[in-house]
Simulated assay, not measured.
Amino acid sequence: MRLLIYGYGFAGKALARRMAAKGWAVSATYRDPEAAAAMRADGIDPVPAGDKAAIAERLGRTQAVLVATPPGPEGCPALQVLVPALARAGAFPDWIGYLSTTGVYGDRRGGWVFEESSLAARSPEGARRVAAERDWLEVGRGMGLTVTVHRLPGIYGPGRSAFDRLRDGRAIRYALPGHVFSRIHVEDLAAGLEASIARPRAGGIYNLCDDEPAPNSAVIAYAAQLLGVEAPPERLVDFGAMPPQARRFYDETKRVSNAKAKAELGWRPAFPTYREGLAAILKAGG
């Protein structure tokens, strides 16, 4: 069995490790030649991201494809490469998974959102995700491919957690009553994708997140407690002084349901809240 990952980042690497441990061969795209060397060292077959012929050759013997690149102003870059390559190879993978974001739901003032909730993205990035989801689902219907969409909140894990922000002095706790967001440990994300690969459903859309939406301030305070350091004091929010990315984050609040992924995929997060996730990261030396 072979997996092709278009966009070998934090999520893609976690899925690659998981599937390789199950005996899968893994190919992944790259743009930087130095990244290709690192992939080879990890046992990954590197493929130039723009080489449609090389990608078509891999697709001809691939059962699962993960699309993990963000869309730009011109749409999803992976779609522009993979669709012609699929046609060229006459390939029909069992599963194509597109990684989207829960940002497609926009602001719900702390309310719950489900896969069937209306899409109300407020940022240009969120609107591009809505369009990319639509484009991939249309490709799936038009070409008879099993395309699934996975909507993700903030992803954390070793090397990307509140511990890192505390250690380098970047952790900020904003006093913003009622503001919560969902998150997912990268290993739970990989497990959710593996479950989707095992139960492919054309047009399936799944929220992959933990069980407890929580304030970012609480997450940082708990991480500080685990490290045995003093948590940064809460500060009032000054939206005008925030960088654009942070302002977009704090301008939206919602609770994301993972009930559908649990029911249809049989998936359960190993780290149902940030507490278990952070404790595991610290125990592993992260």
Results as ranks from 00 to 15, higher is better:
6 Y>I: 10
6 Y>T: 10
7 G>Y: 05
8 Y>G: 00
10 F>N: 09
13 K>F: 05
13 K>G: 09
19 M>Q: 08
24 W>P: 12
29 T>L: 11
32 D>I: 04
33 P>I: 12
37 A>D: 14
38 A>T: 13
39 M>H: 11
53 A>D: 12
56 A>E: 03
65 V>K: 12
67 V>L: 12
70 P>R: 02
71 P>L: 07
71 P>E: 07
71 P>I: 11
73 P>W: 07
74 E>I: 01
75 G>Y: 08
75 G>R: 04
76 C>P: 13
79 L>G: 13
81 V>T: 15
81 V>F: 03
84 P>L: 12
85 A>G: 08
86 L>K: 14
94 D>H: 15
96 I>S: 13
100 S>Q: 13
114 F>A: 08
114 F>N: 07
120 A>W: 02
126 G>L: 09
126 G>W: 09
130 V>D: 06
141 R>Q: 14
143 M>I: 11
144 G>F: 08
152 L>M: 08
154 G>P: 03
157 G>N: 09
165 R>T: 10
168 D>E: 14
169 G>Q: 11
172 I>C: 01
178 G>E: 14
178 G>C: 05
181 F>G: 14
190 A>M: 10
198 A>D: 08
200 P>V: 12
200 P>I: 07
202 A>V: 08
204 G>I: 07
204 G>K: 02
205 I>L: 13
212 E>D: 06
212 E>F: 01
212 E>A: 03
217 S>Q: 05
221 A>G: 06
221 A>K: 04
224 A>Y: 00
224 A>I: 03
225 Q>F: 08
227 L>K: 14
230 E>L: 05
234 E>D: 09
235 R>K: 15
236 L>A: 15
239 F>T: 03
240 G>W: 04
243 P>E: 14
247 R>F: 01
247 R>D: 03
247 R>E: 03
256 V>E: 00
256 V>A: 03
259 A>P: 11
260 K>H: 02
274 Y>E: 00
276 E>H: 00
